[in-house]
Design a protein around this nucleic acid. Sequence first.
DNA 1: GTTCGTGGCGCG
DNA 2: AAAGCGCGCCACGAAC
Length: 572
Amino acid sequence: MYLLLGAHPHGAALQELTQAGGPQPANPEPRIIAREDLAAVVRRLENDRKGGQPPRWIWHRTQDWYPGLLASGVELERCYDLTLCGNILAFSQFTAHTEYARTADRTPAEDPVLPPKTLLPPRPPADQGALFDEPDTAPTPRHTPAELRTEYAAQQAALAAVGPEGNQRNRLQLLLAAESAAAMIAAEMQHAGVPWREDLHEKILADHLGPRPPLGHRPARLEALAAELRNLLNAPALNPDSPQDLIRALHRNGIEVKSTRKWELRESGHPAIEPLLEYKKLSRLHTANGWAWLDAWVAGGRFRPEYVVGGVVSGRWASRGGGALQIPRQVRGAVHADPGHKLIVADASQLEPRVLVALAQDSVMAEAARDQDLYAAIAAKGFGGDRAKAKMALLGAMYGATSGEAGRLMPQLARTYPRAVDFVERAARTGETGGTVTTRLGRSSPPPSERWFHSQRSTTAEEQRRAETIARSRGRFTRNFVVQGSAADWAACWLAELRRRLRGLRADGTPGAELVFFLHDEVMVHAPVERVAACTKAIEDAANAAKELLFGRIPVEFPVSMAVVDSYDHAK
DNA sequence: GTTCGTGGCGCG
DNA sequence: AAAGCGCGCCACGAAC
């Protein structure tokens, strides 16, 4: 059963579709549901399960509906996010020949997520005066069931037009399902929150920085270091937070650095360098994850960031608020399981190189990828057992290193693994010449920038050199895009499969395990101790399922390393 | 006054 | 030792 959930001034407008492919409404007139009844109605429809399957909820954006439903205690099984799926279909090479992609708005959006094309123009309010007369009235509905149906039909038509070759239609369909599931998971994780012990966080801050300072003041430890720096650098008014101020003071003391980056500062043996690096480290803790951060982002023992699915062109998630995807190691001790619970921290080991092996079908590298430690296996084969070298070479190949040690190692890597290296090289050439590359499941890179097109028309030698720089930069982007993006495809399937299994575990109604955090190739599950074993199995099974969904049965392992801990800082 | 670009650094 | 991908956030300081 497919249910369209559209906006309506009174709450929502609901319409049932007779079948997936034929988007004909079962009820010609949408059912209007008052805002206060919505959660109850949705819950009833979700549990109705005609034919065993729960409905698939089709809506403009998961973020518009699902957080409110979760707040009312309603969890849903599946949805179709028209915005996220429309964005994929508008750009995918698999659908490039379709009407949908041809007429899509290709202007780079301010918003990372493009609205689907048929939903684009927000209609002006019918009556401007009403805004003032009835300030509590909901805004004019922008997406009626009819509009949603039109958009859904357009997207399904685009999908149906994908040829069967290379299994492209199935892959794209899988990506749309995984992306929609990801949108639900993001909302659910925000709803659940990361278990965060404020007392432990405050202890970390006090240990490093001293007691909490009055508003607008430096903590004691930072103030002391600043005083020491002013003294050592003979700069009584120095503000170490100002790079300009700082670099002038360093120069006056004969420390000839071009920037204040820490790797450059470490070169100098001046006695001021050590306290300066210490200052920078602690200052970072204070400003990024200090008391102000705690006040702003942690409440009721949970950290609740907003995740932005589709926020990165490669398909990775972004986040808004609280720097959720950059929780520094320093404060991970504050992430702590509730009594009677454990944190299961699972990490897909060396995901990107393994994805590269599978993409390139490099059977020689696949041998190394059957090993738990892929880098060590590669080192044994071509780098005289030097694991660090092997790792640097492989990362360099995926990132497009040209100089330095990584650059020098490239020929060595190419000799042993020509297929894998050739795969990323081809992606780079495609990008340099303005082409598009595509992930395993069909997410394509955006078209070249204005700057790239403009540079193509260069005439002078100087302009041509700049054009080459711009082209190489895009080559590095597309080179990395295929690997990072396909890894994101894998991770989305992993998450969706894991979510399904965790839902199964709590189907009996007992309190279950919750997905509480996701970071590119890592998930965190907060589970009652008696559920830990079932959860670790679910995580493993989900990883295997993701591999098969993407690549079928291939002789490449995607091992998951897991830690069952009370505290996040004990993982890894 | 606010907005925006930059340098720096955290994460993968 | 320090280059090569993707992000978000902070403080600063110039531009508006």
